[in-house]
Amino acid sequence: MFGSDRFNKAKNRGDVVFNSRFLKNLTLLERSEFLQYCHRRQYKEGEYIYYQGDPGTGMYFIEEGKVELIVKPEPEHEGTAHSYFIEAPESFGALSMGYEIRRISSVKCLTDCTLMGFFKPDFETLKKRHPVIAVKFMETLAEVAMKQLEIVTNELKKKSSTEDALSLRFETYKDLREET
């Protein structure tokens, strides 16, 4: 059918616009504007997007395809790698946008993929041109990071004790305060 490829691409992009949890606080117009700063990239099945330990330079929205997030244990620890599978319209790598952290996983394409990358320089441009959109986006990132911290703290409580879990949070807070 004529134009069906174009229709599918528009539909997939629409899925990202309407279903991304990182864009949920934005109006439809703001989401559309945000996506103007994204870069569409094609990856082949089996290709790696980035590797565990790489500097975090941006995030990706999956427009089409399926990826595997692979977390390998540190060399000094024994254990097996863990995999997590995600597909359109999910995203990954978001916490690298607001924080100077290294990648905690490698990401491998399980199928041919179309991704929309949003990188730190794009965010800097967004902040200058559309500060309200940038603030809303960062608020969502902070909310997700806080929810992850809460979940990890609760899991740590189950595996050790409440005192150990909270002591670790307070110690890391103290260490971070001394770094700044």
Rank of each mutant, 00 (worst) to 15 (best):
A142L: 15
F137C: 06
A134K: 02
V132R: 14
I101Y: 00
F137S: 02
Y99M: 14
P121L: 10
A134T: 01
L115H: 00
V132W: 05
R102C: 07
V107T: 12
L95W: 07
E100G: 03
R103L: 00
R102S: 12
L126N: 04
I133E: 11
T111W: 00
R129I: 09
G117Y: 02
F123K: 05
S106R: 05
K128G: 14
M138G: 03
I104D: 09
E139P: 00
F137L: 15
D122R: 01
E139Y: 11
F123E: 06
I104H: 12
E139W: 10
G98E: 00
I104N: 15
D122E: 14
F137M: 13
K108V: 04
R129S: 14
D112I: 02
L115N: 01
S105L: 11
L110I: 07
K120L: 12
M97Q: 09
H130W: 08
V144F: 13
L126P: 07
P131A: 05
K136G: 06
D122G: 06
K127W: 00
K136S: 03
H130N: 14
I101W: 00
F137I: 09
I104W: 06
T111N: 03
E143V: 04
S96G: 10
S105N: 13
V135R: 13
T111M: 01
K120Q: 14
G98A: 11
E100V: 03
I133F: 10
F137E: 05
L95G: 06
C109V: 02
S106P: 04
E139L: 15
A134F: 04
I101M: 08
A142T: 15
L115P: 01
K127H: 03
T125D: 08
I133P: 10
D112P: 06
P131F: 06
G98T: 08
S106V: 03
L115R: 01
S105M: 14
D122C: 08
V107E: 02
M116L: 15
V144M: 11
Y99R: 15
L115V: 07
D122A: 15
V132I: 14
R129W: 05
K120N: 12
E143P: 01
T114R: 11
I101V: 12
L141V: 15
R129E: 15
S106W: 04
M138L: 13
P131D: 07
V135E: 12
D122Q: 11
M138T: 08
M97T: 07
T125E: 13
E143W: 13
K108W: 04
F123N: 01
G117E: 07
T125F: 01
L141N: 08
R129L: 13
M138Y: 09
E143S: 14
K136F: 06
R103D: 00
K136W: 09
